[in-house]
Amino acid sequence: MFKIEGLDAIQKELSEAQAVLESLDGKLGSVTFDPGDPGSIEAAIAAMNRMIDDAIGEHGSNSLIGPMAEEMKENYREAIIEKAAEERLKGGDPE
């Protein structure tokens, strides 16, 4: 019979990841910014990063959640920058 060690730790990380994902489902919030003001755009990115950090809480060190959170931050950063560029081209406000 084979004994595989570490399954408990993996199962715990998977459980934590599932709970965090469920808590994030549509609950991060929103940010507003002035598309013509780089400082406002950076503040919106920082606010979104804080929302993600707050949502994952103490689970950031989880080997599944940590990288997922970083990827989410990058995706939101890119989305905010793209939205700001679109609004500047249209000459409007992102709201």
Rank of each mutant, 00 (worst) to 15 (best):
M1C: 09
F2A: 12
K3I: 15
I4N: 09
E5H: 12
G6K: 04
L7H: 09
D8M: 09
Q11I: 14
K12W: 05
A19Y: 07
V20F: 05
L21G: 15
S23L: 12
L24Y: 04
L24N: 08
D25L: 10
G26N: 02
K27D: 08
K27I: 02
G29R: 00
G29W: 00
S30P: 01
S30T: 09
T32I: 07
F33H: 05
D34E: 06
D37A: 07
G39R: 04
S40T: 03
S40W: 02
I41W: 04
A43N: 09
I45D: 00
A46V: 05
A47Q: 13
A47P: 02
A47I: 02
M48H: 00
M48N: 01
M51P: 01
I52E: 00
G57L: 09
E58G: 14
H59P: 05
H59N: 15
G60R: 05
N62K: 04
S63N: 10
L64H: 08
L64G: 04
I65C: 04
P67S: 01
P67K: 01
M68S: 07
M68Q: 07
E70Q: 11
E70F: 03
K73T: 01
K73Q: 03
E74D: 11
N75F: 08
Y76V: 09
Y76G: 06
E78Y: 11
I80F: 06
E82I: 10
E82V: 12
K83M: 12
E86V: 13
K90H: 11
K90E: 13
K90M: 15
G91D: 04
P94H: 00
